[in-house]
């Protein structure tokens, strides 16, 4: 799809009910990708602070959301984690 086409469709608000449902799917995609990226970051040795900075949230928020969810076999640096 051409970028101009994307803009046209994305700007289409003629069916807001379908549009809103679609936003929920987009959020689901974002959640899926976020966990994958956080796991990849931890595997690469990044600290929670670095992950939080990149996500644009506080370290506490990033840790609270993901600490229990990530693959438990990833060795996580405890110090200053």
């Amino acid at each position: 799809m051409e970028s101009s086409q994307i803009a046209t469709v994305a700007a289409d608000t003629s069916d807001p009910r379908a549009g809103l449902r679609a936003v929920a799917s987009l959020r689901l995609l974002a959640d899926t990708l976020e966990l994958r990226q956080v796991e990849a970051a931890l595997r690469a040795g990044m600290k929670w602070q670095d992950i939080a900075d990149a996500l644009g949230v506080s370290r506490q928020a990033a840790h609270k959301k993901h600490a229990k969810r990530v693959d438990p076999t990833i060795p996580i640096l405890r110090r200053n984690a």
């Binding site: 994307i6 803009a7 469709v9 549009g19 679609a22 995609l29």
Partner: peptide, 15 residues
């Protein structure tokens, strides 16, 4: 889900 993404003009698929 993919049809709904397409509706928004997002050309992406789930992993």
């Amino acid at each position: 889900h993919e049809a709904q993404l397409a509706l928004l003009g997002v050309d992406a698929s789930f992993p």
